Amino acid sequence: MAQTPAKAPVRPLSGIFKGVKYAVNEPFITGALLYILTRGPADIRGRILGPFRTNLLSKNGTQRLAKLITALKWLTAIGVAKRINLGLNRLALNNWTFGRPGAPFEFGPSKRELVVITGGSSGFGYEMVKLFANKARVIVLDVSPFPDELARLSDVYFYRCDVTDTPAVVNLCDEIRKTHGNPSVLINNAGIGIGKTVLETSNEQCEKLFQVNLISHFVLIREFLPDMLKMKKGHIVTIASMASFHAAPGLLDYCCSKVGALYLNDGIRAECLTRYPGGEGICTTSVHPSWHQTGILNSTVTKTLQKHGIVPDPAINVSKLVVDQVLAARSGRLHVPLSEESKSGIRYWPMWYQDMMMGYVFPKSKKGFEFGKDKDSKLSE
């Protein structure tokens, strides 16, 4: 069950820096300022520049102002280019359509759609079950007991299931189809983490992690995608992670499983666009949360993170975005929070810059957080 995190300590300088960074990267702000300084009314321009006449513009004011205008031109052009790139990426991720081909979804009080959620007893899944309950029939697969508050919801059905047992999963999927019909939404949400280095992790632990975090996705997609194609509608949601984009020491198995989940999402999208009749009606969404309070983070790790200024957000922040995405019948890639989106390109940074930013080169502070560094930073024993 999601917990409300403690409030993060207030850092005025950090807030100012974020504000300046936002303004510099927002073309509406830089463009507006550029227009005012070059074509705006003289009185408004005077009010803006007035406070700087006695300091920054007191010497060589004309040249400095010209340099500022040049910088604003570049910032505006780069910002517009980024916006265009972002828009084209979102269009591509939505199968190059502004809407969605295929049969319409019928979410609402009639509950004609059937949603399958793995790992629905806690964390993101728990919140998604609650949010979907009024819009669709919901099937929950989880190895953990089902909370009473969810069991009381109407048209919500729980199946105790270990997703690492492939034959059992296949049999259960057949039972679901016979009892409830064909799911139109599959949310591969179940996930586990260990938080130890490779040499501290056993083969059995590693195999189980990949079975839960990745192999089960393949199994369930094979079970439910064929009928989605026949219905000409479907949505496959993959709960990946920001770990999909970075191989963090002490978390390598988890990161590898999550980059695999991302590639599976992207690959299924490509196959639906090119190989499967009716595939254009299938939505695919990968979700990349950062620090969020789910069952993966035990209480000890959560407290350790908070000591380092990292306060996990509530699970509902992710779950609501996922449900909104499904109800809107949009494909895409969700970074939560949105500010994390820029970090998804970390693999394209120069290697020397990656090493410097991650602290691999210069001596790091002993106070820095790293998974698996000590007993308080391990997700499981």
Results as ranks from 00 to 15, higher is better:
residue 1 M to D: 08
residue 370 E to G: 02
residue 364 K to E: 15
residue 105 F to N: 01
residue 247 A to G: 15
residue 109 P to F: 01
residue 91 L to C: 06
residue 75 L to S: 08
residue 85 N to E: 12
residue 193 G to D: 04
residue 11 R to D: 15
residue 150 L to N: 09
residue 214 L to H: 14
residue 26 E to Q: 14
residue 135 K to G: 00
residue 264 L to K: 03
residue 344 S to C: 06
residue 99 G to K: 02
residue 94 N to L: 01
residue 283 C to F: 03
residue 133 A to R: 02
residue 322 V to G: 01
residue 266 D to W: 09
residue 27 P to Q: 08
residue 326 V to G: 00
residue 274 T to V: 05
residue 129 V to C: 06
residue 113 E to R: 01
residue 30 T to H: 10
residue 378 K to Q: 15
residue 17 F to S: 15
residue 282 I to L: 01
residue 230 K to D: 12
residue 32 A to I: 10
residue 217 H to Q: 15
residue 51 P to G: 09
residue 62 T to Y: 09
residue 254 Y to T: 05
residue 197 T to L: 09
residue 341 E to A: 15
residue 188 N to W: 07
residue 57 L to E: 08
residue 9 P to K: 13
residue 21 K to H: 08
residue 144 S to C: 00
residue 278 G to N: 02
residue 336 V to P: 03
residue 369 F to T: 06
residue 207 E to W: 05
residue 215 I to Q: 12
residue 273 L to S: 14
residue 166 T to C: 11
residue 374 D to L: 06
residue 25 N to R: 14
residue 276 Y to N: 07
residue 329 A to T: 11
residue 361 V to D: 12
residue 165 D to P: 07
residue 74 W to R: 09
residue 333 R to G: 02
residue 235 H to N: 05
residue 248 A to D: 10
residue 22 Y to S: 12
residue 328 A to R: 09
residue 56 L to I: 14
residue 50 G to H: 15
residue 184 S to C: 13
residue 80 V to H: 01
residue 67 K to M: 13
residue 29 I to A: 12
residue 231 M to R: 11
residue 39 R to F: 11
residue 103 A to F: 00
residue 183 P to A: 09
residue 368 G to E: 15
residue 292 H to Q: 13
residue 21 K to D: 12
residue 110 S to L: 12
residue 276 Y to L: 12
residue 294 T to E: 03
residue 40 G to Y: 01
residue 23 A to C: 13
residue 241 S to Y: 05
residue 28 F to P: 00
residue 160 R to H: 10
residue 166 T to K: 15
residue 286 S to E: 01
residue 202 S to Q: 05
residue 314 P to H: 13
residue 46 G to C: 09
residue 146 F to N: 08
residue 193 G to K: 02
residue 139 I to C: 07
residue 320 K to Y: 06
residue 339 S to I: 10
residue 44 I to F: 13
residue 103 A to R: 05
residue 286 S to M: 00
residue 22 Y to A: 13
residue 231 M to F: 00
residue 227 D to W: 00
residue 326 V to I: 04
residue 88 L to E: 03
residue 282 I to R: 01
residue 263 Y to L: 12
residue 81 A to S: 10
residue 262 L to T: 11
residue 330 R to I: 03
residue 104 P to Q: 05
residue 82 K to F: 00
residue 267 G to F: 02
residue 37 L to W: 10
residue 28 F to T: 15
residue 244 S to M: 05
residue 375 K to P: 03
residue 123 G to E: 07
residue 34 L to V: 05
residue 84 I to N: 03
residue 326 V to N: 00
residue 162 D to V: 09
residue 119 G to M: 07
residue 79 G to A: 04
residue 4 T to E: 15
residue 126 Y to G: 01
residue 162 D to I: 09
residue 131 L to D: 07
residue 277 P to V: 06
residue 302 T to L: 13
residue 51 P to Y: 10
residue 63 Q to V: 12
residue 108 G to F: 03
residue 148 D to M: 03
residue 192 I to Y: 04
residue 117 I to D: 10
residue 142 D to N: 04
residue 7 K to E: 15
residue 20 V to E: 05
residue 361 V to N: 14
residue 203 N to H: 10
residue 98 F to R: 05
residue 315 A to P: 06
residue 208 K to Y: 01
residue 83 R to C: 04
residue 139 I to W: 04
residue 366 K to A: 10
